[in-house]
Amino acid sequence: MIEAKGLTKVYGEKTAVSGVNFTVEAGRVTGFLGPNGAGKSTTMRMIMGLDRPTSGTVTVNGAPFASHAAPLRDVGALLDAKAVHTSRTAYNHLRAMAATHSIPKKRVHEVIEMTGLADVAKKKVGGFSLGMGQRLGIAAALLGDPQTVILDEPVNGLDPEGVVWVRNLVKYLASEGRTVFLSSHLMSEMAVTADHLIVIGRGRIIADAPIRDIINGKGRIRTRVRTDQPDQLMQLLAGDGVSVEVQENELLEVTGLDPRQIARAALDSRVMIYELTPLQASLEEAYMELTKDEVEYHSLITTGPSAPVQSGGN
């Protein structure tokens, strides 16, 4: 279990992480989602004792990482795929790390096999693709067979097959009762990998909830309604927290009421409706909604005339 309390990191004038509190529980995959520069990597480096918090604390299984008796056996981390000397071979890198904890060579070979690096283990890491670097980083993280696994953007640069492999691996690790903390800026990846989600933007936690709750966020239940009496239906549905948007002539989009309530209102007033479709917000939409005020680097192109892509599943 990882626990952060009031965790803050200030670099000069810039606050990278601002008083965050969260708990990463064992036995499930916890996603750490946020746009680039949101403070994900800084938070993870603070967990690993590499960056010193400006204030606040973070502990793994109740103790700061640096005070663990056998750190690699308790916590394994992929923090940066490039955390390797480029002139050393993958095997020698892992062997040197293993030596600090007397981890046998057998285990080194195991993680090499497990991560699919057997063919390149004797090659210099400098020649590795981004994907192979990620696999080596994951191999290093698993070296000590740790109870807690921290992976920073593990699917970056992986081929589709590698993405699926990481997805299955983290789910498997969590099913064994391990604590799995996984960061990404890819919402779609989180939607299929994580059980629980912590969303961060500009160094603050924006959401911390089971993934289902974030997808079905309150006040975000939208329903598409087709009726031949749109004006009348709009009057019927008007109320606190309800917004109705006219999309086309007879097509409305209702937010704030569930389909049953809309159908009941229509039936009571004998207004015919001929389509009633719940629109579940995809995590991507929910994420955009959550982070729209928190994105640090806006791309100018998004202000073009084209409407945002509708990606909600029906």
Partner: peptide, 28 residues
């Protein structure tokens, strides 16, 4: 099974144990 440790080891440590209580081998 990527684990040399039994699968039960995980559940055993889900409580608030001190950090070094679950180490299962030599440290640095």
């Amino acid at each position: 099974n990527p684990s040399r440790r039994g699968a039960h080891a995980g559940s055993a440590s889900s409580g608030k144990l001190p950090g070094d209580a679950i180490s299962t081998g030599p440290g640095p």
